[in-house]
Amino acid sequence: MKIALFIPCLVNQLMPDVAVATLELLEKLGHEVIFPKGQTCCGQPMTNSGCYNEARNTTMKLLNSFKGVECDAIVCPAASCLVAAKENFHEFDDSPEAEAVIAKLYELTEFLHDVAPIPAFSKAFPHRISLQMSCHGVRMLGLASGSEFMGKPFNKVEAILAKIPGIEIRYPERKDECCGFGGTFAMDEGAVSAKMGKDKAWFHANTGAEYVVGYDPSCMMHLDGMIRRQQLPVQTRHVAQIINAAL
């Protein structure tokens, strides 16, 4: 398939390794990968604060960078940004061109589970990981059933990672409780955000995992900052980095 990468601003600027891993793993799987120019923020920091007027320009700039791009799918290694992009594109542009872009948007694990499954992993990843089931991926994107849900449980992220030879998957206590990042919440409500992050970091560390693995870079950045402040013996990785290492 021909895949256009949607690399959110945070990943582009502060976690380029996550973007590189995403690109490499998709190439290893035989896809043609392109990176359309002109991408910027999806507008989430503004719209999540209620500031829709302030979000319009940046959202439209991002949307326009994908309009007319020839590809089968647009793949993003950040669940929360993906959800916001979908919602904000809808909010500011109801043209058929915008709809065409929205219809191709996939979060990375969603794409690897629903659209183009990985046939087999070639390398082992003999490590214990603790999965960070971030909120927007679970409760808005449906990457997994939330712990609140009483129907048949499912977990697309685990389904993908569990096929990696040697991997041992664990979950923190209060499995999918929010890590406390919440965008500008981390600054507005510093004390509560920090306490949530601290609790989450310890719950992950308590699993004895070597790596905390997640699909939402912003949550991972927050947890990484908290883990290093607490000096916990665990490191953060993005799912793309784990998958890429096993291909």
């Binding site: 990176f35 955000s193 920090a194 992050g197 900052g225």
Partner: peptide, 22 residues
Amino acid sequence: AGAWGKYRELPVAPKSSFEHWY
């Protein structure tokens, strides 16, 4: 870094952006 740096370590800076790497 305000509330960020008060409670957490700041992100480790990468060498360059992904755009640059690409």
